[in-house]
Design a binder for these strands. Structure first.
Lengths: 148, 148
DNA sequence: ACCGGTTGGTCAAGCAGATTGACTATAGGA
DNA sequence: TCCTATAGTCAATCTGCTTGACCAACCGGT
């Protein structure tokens, strides 16, 4: 593959990612959740299964734990999560979603389905499942990084 | 498609985009271009064809023109671009890449090819061209937005 | 049991990138 | 010739993140 093709592919991918993020965020806001930023969604995704510590979250988001702690402060203040004592470790605190946090997560899923649905119109169901499979195969396992 | 599938697809796409951005930037830095941020690459892409005004850049990057102007200040200071009087409009200034700017752009293309090359190992040539085609079809035409 | 190093979390200060607001100079149509 | 829209900059401010310092709790070896 030529370098210029790789660049065009990269640009398309990043444009799609940026647009997707924007649409999901718009959709969440449109559903009545104000003051949420895209980064919160990634935090919610990590918190959802059963809570997480600030350090877990920091590693997941690829930021310092101070930054993660500030983000938690913010979503706690806005009512999306709460800090609880950690059952096994007295130093740690388990951050878990509140009911409002779950509602916001569901709203994000709906918004994502809406945005992705637009692609189905362009690609068709068959190619969409191919795309999903391909992305799953090349997705990294490291921390989620902001695109730029 | 279920909401949870859309969310998984979105997460995979954003993870891939974040990783790609990170790798391209790493590759550019490794080739000796210091003090460059991912956002600069998107600016370079817009400047490359024949220069652009600050206002063009602002629209392309989806930021205010003050922010775009500051970014131009930075890449000018670092020697990647220069401001010239605009041939048609005395108010405007045409920002064009210097030779160093072109070199950096080529380095970014190489880094992109390297990063994308890793996917070829996972998907094979055939599926890669499918992916390229699919992304090109769903890529938006609006401004490039930071992923989060 | 205790001690030393590691780990989870917060406080505080500072920085970098972006925004809003105000302003000047040129463009361009009525 | 106005009058408005546009290109660009200056200045102040905000926000999210980083670095650095610190305390409390865990845990392995002795």
């Amino acid at each position: 593959m030529q370098n210029s093709e790789a660049m065009a592919l990269s640009a398309a991918l990043l444009a799609v990612a940026g647009e997707l993020t924007h649409r999901i965020n718009e959709g969440v806001v449109a559903r009545g959740f104000e003051g949420v930023r895209p980064a919160h969604g990634f935090a919610f995704a990590r918190l959802a299964p059963g809570g997480a510590t600030v350090t877990d979250l920091a590693a997941h988001l690829g930021v310092t734990k101070q930054a993660a702690s500030q983000l938690v402060d913010e979503i706690v203040r806005k009512g999306y999560a709460e800090r609880r004592p950690h059952p096994q470790d007295a130093r740690a605190r388990l951050v878990v979603l509140t009911e409002q946090g779950w509602a916001c997560t569901r709203a994000a899923e709906e918004a994502a389905a809406e945005a992705v649905g637009a692609w189905v119109e362009l690609l068709g169901e068959g190619e969409m499942s191919v795309l999903r499979d391909q992305l799953a195969r090349i997705a990294p396992h490291g921390p989620l990084r902001p695109a730029w």
